[in-house]
């Protein structure tokens, strides 16, 4: 790192991470994703600022990175109106290339709609060209995904909504173990601009630091014009990946 990229405290600059609806959409360890971003931003020599946005809050300015999780059906109902009211600012950020990670429930609601088993339709905000249909079947278990961008991605899925991708997005990868987006096409997750959308909990980022660093790098480049990485110690992540990859479904 060169001296001119450091501020007085020796930081390369502040990266503001916004957690979307952590109160209502935060299940199966989704907090782990926010924690990993916070710590790795620090390990790369930047200063993390972790913000929360919940129903009814003012939407903060200067957000560099967005992370959102899954929720129960009740959580999705609680946030749906508020999310619609924030569709504008979120779409603007997404189209402008802000990095975002949306898992499970918020992946679904970033799409066009979620049609429940009973036939009612929860509108999404349509940033992602995907649609989701509730099913009787619950897709549960360890997942391995082959991706071009991030290598092998490991995680754990737990969802009954099945998502199909439209032409406007590409899949995150191809499922090597598990189910992924739906029980028919063998694909998992979605990629659009700098959004990574996935069904994988686990939490996703701790065992997939390549995705965490992609989000951080993108945020830094967008804000500072360049990303100067540090050298986080990923020894445990490598071993945790090796062991996780061998576990049964």
């Amino acid at each position: 790192m060169s001296p001119d990229t450091q501020d007085a405290q020796g930081s390369k600059g502040t990266i503001r991470v916004l957690q979307l609806y952590p109160r209502d959409m935060n299940i199966y360890g989704d907090w782990g994703n926010a924690l990993v971003l916070k710590q790795r931003i620090g390990w790369h020599g930047y200063t993390p600022e972790l913000l929360e946005y919940n129903v009814g809050d003012d939407f903060p300015d200067g957000v560099d990175l967005i992370v959102g999780g899954g929720g129960q059906d009740s959580g999705q109902l609680v946030i749906q109106d508020d999310l619609q009211s924030r569709a504008g600012v979120l779409t603007e950020l997404a189209e402008d290339g802000a990095p975002m990670l949306v898992i499970c429930g918020l992946y679904q609601l970033f799409g066009r709609f979620f049609k429940t088993r009973s036939g009612s339709v929860i509108p999404g905000i349509g940033i992602l060209d995907v649609e989701t249909h509730g099913t009787e079947e619950r897709l549960i278990g360890n997942v391995k995904v082959a991706t071009a961008e991030f290598g092998e991605v490991l995680g754990y899925e737990n969802h009954s909504g099945q998502t199909t991708l439209g032409d406007g997005v590409r899949p995150l990868g191809t499922v090597a173990k598990g189910t992924g987006n739906n029980s028919s096409d063998g694909q998992e997750g979605a990629r659009y601009k700098n959004i990574v959308a996935s069904y994988l909990h686990g939490s996703l980022l701790p065992k997939n630091p390549a995705i965490a660093d992609f989000l951080i790098r993108t945020a830094a480049e967008r804000k500072f014009g360049a990303f100067v990485p540090g050298s986080p110690d990923d020894g445990y992540a490598v071993l945790a990946r090796e062991h996780a990859a061998r576990r049964p479904r």
Binding site: Y28, G202, A244, R249
Partner: peptide, 28 residues
């Protein structure tokens, strides 16, 4: 099978003394 739950626990209280030994199929 899901290890996600470990991320819903805060381990700050173990920071002072550390953890001497980790084991099990998900030790890592």
């Amino acid at each position: 099978r899901d290890m996600s739950w470990l991320w819903d626990v805060e381990f700050d209280s173990l920071r002072e003394g550390g953890v001497d030994q980790l084991t099990g199929s998900r030790a890592y």
